[in-house]
């Protein structure tokens, strides 16, 4: 038993060496990319240089972008992001769908060319189908047509949708969807209005 393990040792060392080598190569590339990014940009209005800095989620998602996300890394990302979710303090999930439609239509916010005193949009239509009357929708995300009509409005359904809007990476690590609440892109009130767009029976999404 002991002997067999010992005989396997050189092989294990080789595997470990190869794995470590890949890590080092990947790390070296990361340093190169970060240094080049720092040298290749300059602050412009609200788009300041700290926007180039990555949090742990962004770092991990970049590192594994070209391959398959290892399950331990996926767990780590979901744990980190689940911890950020804050339900609405007053327990009210649903605002005004009309406000939500406007937020879904608005693509500005946080670009160097945007007025920082104006509220940012969610730009939902860039990636999702929502209301039937808006035909200029993108296809990066799934269709959200009849969202509330199909799912109903049980407390767990509402909480799950809130979590998705607040921090998409809590349940879908490295999602293409921004973490609207956690990253301060949209306010609680804006998120509530979007919730109403998804769930209100009067909302065009459910018509």
């Amino acid at each position: 038993m002991r002997n067999m393990n010992l005989r396997k040792l050189p092989f294990l060392a080789l595997v470990l060496g190869v794995l470590l080598h890949f890590e080092v190569v990947a790390d070296g590339m990361r340093d190169t990319v970060v240094a080049a990014m720092e040298a290749s940009f300059e602050a412009k209005k609200q788009a300041t240089m700290d926007r180039l800095d990555q949090d742990e989620t962004q770092t991990l998602c970049t590192q594994h972008a070209a391959g398959i996300l290892p399950s331990a890394v996926a767990e780590r990302i979901m744990t980190l992001n689940r911890a950020t979710i804050r339900p609405p303090p007053d327990g009210q999930y649903l605002g005004d769908w009309k406000g939500g439609e406007l937020i879904a239509q608005t693509g500005t916010g946080f670009q160097s060319s945007d007025d920082p005193t104006k509220p940012a949009g969610g730009n939902c239509y860039a990636c999702h189908e929502l209301s039937g009357s808006e035909i200029a929708f993108g296809t990066i995300g799934p269709s959200l047509r009849y969202y509330g009509k199909v799912r109903g409005t049980s407390p767990t359904t509402l909480a799950a949708a809130w979590a998705k809007l607040y921090n998409s990476n809590a349940h879908m690590p490295c999602s293409n969807m921004p973490r609207f609440g956690h990253r301060g892109i949209l306010t609680d009130q804006q998120l509530k209005d979007l919730m109403a767009l998804l769930f209100d029976p009067a909302s065009p999404v459910n018509q």
Binding site: T32, V33, R51, L52, Q54, T57, Q58, A65, N169, R183
Partner: peptide, 21 residues
């Protein structure tokens, strides 16, 4: 290689990289 690395570099308030779009 740098271009390849930058293509996947996620950053900013929206977590976008070139690969997102």
């Amino acid at each position: 290689d740098l271009g390849h690395g930058v293509f996947y570099y996620r950053a900013g308030p929206h977590d976008f990289s070139c690969a997102t779009c």
